[in-house]
Simulated assay, not measured.
Amino acid sequence: MLQPFASSDPFTIGVELEVQVVNTHDYNLTKAATELLNRVRERDFAGAIKPETTEGMIELATGVCENFDQARNQLLVLRDTLVRAADFLNVGVCGGGTNSFQNWYDQRSDGRERSEYLMGLYGALYQQFTIFGQHVHVGCPDADSALVLLHSLSRYVPHFIALAASSPYVQGTDTQFQCARLNSVAPFPLSGQAPFVTRWSEFEQYFERMEGTGLVHSLKDFYWDIRPSPGYGTIEIRVMDTPLRVEWAAAIAAYIQSVARYLLVDEPVHLSERDYEVYRANRFMACRFGLDGNCLNPETGHRGPIRAEILATLEAIAGHARILGAEEGLEIIRRTVTDGLSDAMWLRRIYRVHDSLHEVARQQCQIWRGAQIPE
């Protein structure tokens, strides 16, 4: 049965980051999540450090945050707490949407009931799901508004993918994608986009039909790019790779937060199911080419570069960013989109210099713990 949609403060945010746990020999994934969780169990911090899918993954989750600065500060504390525990155990932790050279067939369930169920259901597909993403929750004033926001944000999904893209390497190979992580999500039968309904009563009816098939037991069984989280009173945007730095993750969350307020307050988007006719193509362009990809506006038919679209959006949402306290985060976005390297571009640059994915992963661990990204 679907939970009632909880009350939440509109446009508050919560950030979740799935983090790699690696050894300090060749920087492949290692089975240390349980030991890390035991080390941090008695520590005092806002948010949570939790298990995720396999023993080579950890999830960092903020509490409910009002603005960029609060989200960044909570993520920094969570990061530092995890890094100290990892140092004690002589393992590494890092961001990035994929581990560049881990073998999917080496991955095992972490033993939790849900992990065992999913491993039994999806088999090798679930083992290949050892990927690392950033999820952002946005508080919504009510259930119907949540669905309107969910579908309005679909036009901005290429922005979110391109900004966070950090998974060019899979199984030791350059995939030619900026974000290859989402290629591991697409094969799941309940992935993609949510059904086009904008009233919660209609969504409840949809869920009841799906539940009646036996295919789903909760909303977590849907691997949608954006899905409602009624227990929190939020929608959850799930398309981003885990960035290499928590500061960048917080900036992306601030961008999403500001776009969300712009969409619900100014109502610039005229929703139509036809938006999804070009959705998969736009999503592909963002995954393949990142900020240099081109996307088609489903309403106007205009095709333009994602980089330019983000810069135009920053202008449109500036007033909302001021109200939300997101200006510093959006300035980080602007500088990177205008002059900087994306995470995927930086990973490729390091590989070209050192010709070693192991060295790339070693430097990812250094960047994660606060070292400056070399230009």
Rank of each mutant, 00 (worst) to 15 (best):
A260Q: 02
Q205I: 09
A143Y: 00
A308E: 07
R283G: 00
E328S: 09
D241I: 04
Q102I: 11
V216L: 04
R303G: 11
R349L: 15
V148W: 12
L190D: 04
W200H: 05
Q193S: 01
F207D: 07
M1K: 09
W368G: 03
L150N: 00
L147M: 11
I367R: 13
E42F: 15
V360P: 05
L76K: 14
I256P: 05
Y279T: 02
L125Q: 15
M57K: 08
R261A: 05
Y126T: 00
G293V: 04
R79K: 08
K220A: 11
A253G: 13
I367H: 04
L314P: 06
P189G: 03
Y206K: 06
T338C: 12
G319F: 07
L76C: 05
D69Y: 10
I310V: 14
E309R: 03
G231Q: 06
R108P: 00
A143W: 03
H270K: 12
V278Y: 15
C65I: 02
D26N: 15
I256V: 12
E331S: 13
K31N: 09
A321L: 01
L29H: 02
E327R: 13
L149W: 09
P4H: 13
T54C: 13
A371E: 15
G120R: 08
V216Q: 08
A46L: 12
G14Q: 06
